[in-house]
Structures are given as structure tokens and as C-alpha cells.
Design a binder for these strands. Structure first.
Lengths: 185, 185
DNA sequence: TTCCAGAAGTTGCTACGACAACTAATTTCC
DNA sequence: GGAAATTAGTTGTCGTAGCAACTTCTGGAA
């Protein structure tokens, strides 16, 4: 539950406020920051950690992943394993490589997830007769039944995530995140 | 480099288009989707993978992380290790627990990162005299010199990420992501 | 037909992230 | 003053993510 011992947070900012100038050349509105450190170390810092939007995106991702993880745990399913299952619930019989392409994931990880899901009895891995290198993934009855519970759960989670956020805002977020991806590639 | 063997992507969509109805109750604008599967399996799917904004956020995070990872690699620094160093470049002497609070990270992972960074010679871990449980992290000369190169690199990366994105758009993204985090907690 | 390039999948390794369970040091409270 | 609770840090485990190197299989070129 507790990532760090709570007192540390207060002490961090107390010491920061004590040791450093309260004023800084930039003003910040992020509420968790109580005061702004001035850099004495000689290294020119123009940005603070709170300014890096990539850090904020990362934290958001972790928060969302951690919550869906909790909801999936009772079903013996990890978040990314769930994505493999989601593809199969749309329709099964895809090869691991096709699943990897669909999910934009590394084939090695998809292979490990598929092996794990097969161990749990949610799917079977069947070598393709026309190409014995390929493994097709088919839902077992257990895997199909799992979908009856987990698909609604996933959709409820999505609705929870976007509740109170307008379609326009969602569109802006998608477009901006897409642009960020293009910007760095 | 190549996450999956490229042919699989084409084959996924070729088969999907062949097997499934091209029309669907919902229309999508995400360009990577060529056609829309209709669900035959009996499981009621109202959302497709492309609709889950959390998946999109996750992919964005992975893309950004992977790019900064490449840029940091020549400096023998991993992305999250870099965040620990960023805190220390602001000012050093924080305990591991304080660093964890500042970065909103699990103290176990901060401990391992600190040990790793100490092995690399970028910092030293000094037990505090007043409380011998705590380890304070201090930059070594090597660690301080690293900042001279890496801080500008990180700031250039941030500018690259947000280039062509207005302040207003960034504000919307921050506000929406914040709301999503609140929505699930 | 044989050989070679490429494709599908696997194994091993490193880096996180999260959690449980642990040691050791420090506070709290009776 | 001493037992109990709390805190800082560590170790182990599992689930991703990404990369290198490998085997096996396939299909195309000579």
C-alpha cells in the first residue's frame, strides 16, 4: 500500500523550504509543490521534475495500470495478459506474432504471456499445420467464460476513467499524445 | 528493434477484413485501424482496444520512455535512475525515503536504484548520524559532472516532446490526466 | 535440389513497478 | 525504563518492456 514512509514527504518539503529561496524565476500551480528550490549546485536547471510532462504521463499510466490490476486480480489475470485475452474475445485463432502486431508488443513478451495464460487454462497454443513455426491461440471454455466477467469489468473501468471528461477533451488528449509520440520518433 | 515480424501486421488486418463485416455500429478515426471486427463469439463487446484511452496512454508512455532511454544509454544511466539523479542535481543529501516521496516511487525500487547508482560511482550512500536507519545520498564528483551533460539532454528531450503543442493543449492534457487519476482512486 | 535468407518462437538478461515479509533502529507510551 | 508500535531500508517474487542471441522452419534463388 504505502510506497514510502509518509513522514518523508513532509520532511522533504520542510527542508526544501528551509534551505532554499522561496522565490524562483518560474511560478508553478501544481498543488503538491509547496515551495520552489533554487539551484545552488552549479548545474543549470531550467526545468523542474514537475515540468516534465513525460513524467506526469508515466505516473498517470502507473496509476491507471495499478487500479485495473487490482480489479483483475480476483480473476487471476494481469493487466497485459488481459489485453491478449481481449484480442481473443474479439476472435481467437491468431498466432502469437499476430497478437504482438495487434497489441504493438514485443513478440517475446507475448510468447511469455501466452505461455502463462495457457498454464492458467485460459487458452491453448496449437501449432499451425501449414507453418509449424507458428502457434495459434485458441480460447478454452474457461477462457471464454472468463470474458463474460472481465469484459464488462474492463468497460466499466474505462467509463470510470473518462467520467466527467468531455469527448472534446478526450480528443485533445489523444491528438496531443499522438503528436508527442511522433515528435520523438 | 523489431517488436514483431512485420508480415504479421498485414496478415492480421487482411484476415480481419476478410472474415469480418467492414461496417460496425461505431465509426473510428484511428488511422492504424483498417477495418472493424464484428464480434461473433457471443461475448458482448461494446468497446474495442482502440477505444481504451488507458491503453493509448500506456503506449505513449512506453514510446517516450524508450526514446529517452536511448538518449541516456551512452551516459550509462537508465530513465528512472536519471530521475533520482535529477533530484540530487537540484540538491543532494536527501535520504532514500525522501527521494521516494519526491518521486512518488516505491522505496524498495529507490533503494535498488540508489545501490545501482552507487555501484556506478555517481553517488555515495551515507548513514545519517542522528538516525542510523537512514541513508543519505550524496553526489560524487563523477555524478556532478554527469549532470552537466544529462540535464541539458533531458531538457532538450522535453522540448522535443512538446514541440508544436500549445500551452493550452498541454494544460488540457495535464488537467485531464489528473482527472483520470482522481476518477480511479 | 540444395543452400541461404528471413520468419516464428524461445531463452536469457536488465530495468522497473508493486507487494509481502523481513531486520534494525527509533519513538511512543505505560 | 522497557515493551510495543513505527520507521528506514533490504530481500524475494511476479509481471511487464525491450534487447540480443539462439533454434527451427519455410520459401526463394542459384
Amino acid at each position: 500500500m504505502q510506497k514510502y514512509n509518509r513522514a518523508a514527504n513532509a520532511s522533504f518539503f520542510v527542508r526544501a523550504c528551509f534551505l532554499f529561496d522561496r522565490k524562483s524565476k518560474v511560478s508553478y500551480t501544481h498543488e503538491q509543490i509547496e515551495c520552489v528550490a533554487t539551484n545552488f549546485g552549479g548545474i543549470g536547471l531550467n526545468l523542474r521534475l514537475e515540468d516534465y510532462i513525460s513524467i506526469f504521463i508515466h505516473e498517470t499510466d502507473l496509476t491507471l495500470t495499478s487500479e485495473i490490476k487490482k480489479k483483475l486480480e480476483p480473476h487471476n489475470l494481469a493487466p497485459e495478459q488481459n489485453l491478449v485475452m481481449m484480442v481473443l474475445w474479439e476472435s481467437d485463432g491468431w498466432t502469437q506474432n499476430e497478437i504482438a502486431a495487434r497489441l504493438n508488443k514485443d513478440k517475446t513478451n507475448v510468447a511469455r504471456m501466452a505461455a502463462n495464460l495457457a498454464d492458467k487454462g485460459f487458452l491453448t497454443r496449437v501449432p499451425r499445420t501449414e507453418d509449424r513455426r507458428s502457434l495459434q491461440l485458441f480460447l478454452t471454455e474457461k477462457g471464454r467464460e472468463l470474458g463474460e466477467e472481465v469484459v464488462p469489468l474492463a468497460e466499466r473501468f474505462h467509463n470510470q476513467v473518462v467520467s466527467g471528461i468531455t469527448e472534446e477533451e478526450q480528443a485533445v488528449v489523444r491528438q496531443v499524445l499522438q503528436r508527442m509520440q511522433r515528435n520523438v520518433q
